[in-house]
């Protein structure tokens, strides 16, 4: 079992749905939503919250800096 659990909070109104975070995530946590935000972009969200280890790869590759990453040791 993973020693860390992580979580991300996406600022959905600022997300542009580029998908760079999805390829950066090593655990396949993130997907693009079917719904769109106010600008018409399919924003990123946590599709598999249990798999997140809080590595912050998504946060540091996000071109718009919309992802906040939280990490908690179990």
């Amino acid at each position: 079992m993973a020693k860390f659990r992580g979580a991300i909070v996406v600022d959905t109104e600022r997300c542009k749905g580029c998908g760079v975070c999805i390829t950066a995530c090593p655990c396949g946590v993130i997907e693009l939503a079917k719904e769109v935000n106010g600008k018409g972009y399919n924003y990123a969200f946590m599709a598999n919250p249990e798999a997140c280890i809080g590595c912050a790869s998504c946060g540091i590759t996000c071109p718009d800096g919309v992802i906040k990453v939280y990490k908690k040791a179990l």
Partner: peptide, 11 residues
């Protein structure tokens, strides 16, 4: 998990 003390990355 989403608590201020667990924050590891933000803009």
């Amino acid at each position: 998990i989403i608590q201020p003390e667990n924050l590891v990355y933000e803009k």
